[in-house]
């Protein structure tokens, strides 16, 4: 069981603590909008600042965690092979696991190149290869797949899963602002905003019950029915475009997929919405609290 905690106020406020059992969850994704504190959290876990009150202690070079920042950090004066071998302390060809990674990362094409002669995606793949050469127990990737093309990303995601599953102590922590990038292969997702954790669960759990608009928006919802004291307002870009008075149908996802009907009346020049529940009755605004997919079907 790994316990992680970063508690700091400057330069960015981060108050986050979580535990991961790598035997159960081998790939954990930190998802949040820009400025949520994901990168700072990883940097803190790597030991560069913040009071780490979790299980990771000691200076960065003694931690079991290897961190790949989102900025290009390859050494511009060395080839990728030289850098990997410096970290490995031996020849790349003699390490079966890294040889496998050269295939997964499609790294042969740039192994003997220096970073300035490589594309952004190649640099990200090289940074992952170099990090794995450190033989970490925890691999922390900060937006490390963001510039990689979709087919390569699939292959690398599979590789990361296999790498983590090969040893019950291994863990991959990766950050992204796109939930869809990790939904298919993360065992667990932590949703972050403004330096705190908003939601913690499997991708399916979070999709089924995001619990707040911040989380719902991050995992791909485009509309949220908010129940106020007076009106139900459906805030969705596509639904907003529905002409007043027209009927739209949306899918209610909380507690199962119920269908509800949204009527679009005109009220003081704005489009407001009332919701009809599956049983046909109109929603009581004091009891309804649902998230809806904002798919206009009419």
């Amino acid at each position: 069981m790994w316990r992680f905690a970063v508690d700091m106020s400057r330069p960015v406020a981060i108050h986050v603590a979580f535990e991961v059992n790598p035997a159960h969850d081998s790939v954990v994704a930190l998802v949040g909008p820009n400025g949520a504190g994901k990168s700072t959290l990883l940097r803190g876990l790597a030991g560069f600042f913040g009071s780490d009150q979790g299980g990771l202690t000691g200076p960065p070079w003694k931690r079991p965690l290897t961190w790949v920042p989102q900025e290009p950090t390859l050494f511009t004066h060395r080839t990728v092979r030289q850098q990997v071998q410096w970290v490995l302390g031996g020849r790349l060809d003699t390490d079966p696991e890294l040889r496998q990674w050269v295939t997964w990362l499609d790294a042969k094409e740039f192994l003997d190149k220096k970073p300035l002669a490589m594309s952004g995606g190649q640099q990200q793949r090289a940074a992952i290869l170099r990090a794995l050469a450190a033989k970490p127990q925890i691999l922390a990737l900060d937006e490390a797949l963001s510039q990689i093309d979709a087919p390569s990303r699939e292959r690398i995601s599979t590789g990361l899963q296999q790498w983590a599953d090969a040893d019950p102590d291994r863990l991959v922590i990766l950050t992204t602002h796109q939930f869809a990038d990790v939904a298919h292969f993360a065992d667990r997702v932590l949703i972050m905003a403004a330096g705190t954790l908003l939601r913690d669960g499997t991708p399916a759990e979070i999709v089924a019950d995001p619990r707040s608009w911040e989380v719902a928006a991050l995992v791909g919802y485009v509309a949220l029915l908010r129940v106020g004291d007076t009106d139900l307002a459906l805030q969705a870009h596509d639904v907003d475009s529905v002409p007043p008075g027209q009927r739209v149908r949306v899918t209610m996802v909380k507690k199962g997929a119920h269908e509800i009907t949204v009527r679009v009346p005109t009220h003081q020049g704005r489009e407001l919405f009332a919701v009809r529940k599956p049983d046909g009755s109109w929603a009581d605004s004091s009891t309804l609290d649902v998230y809806v997919r904002g798919v206009v079907v009419t």
């Binding site: 410096w86 970290v87 990090a131």
Partner: peptide, 16 residues
């Protein structure tokens, strides 16, 4: 020069 380059190198289990 970005300090991230050195930081990532330290995180590769290499001493200062």
């Amino acid at each position: 020069l970005s300090t991230r380059v050195e930081e990532s190198a330290l995180s590769l289990n290499r001493r200062p």
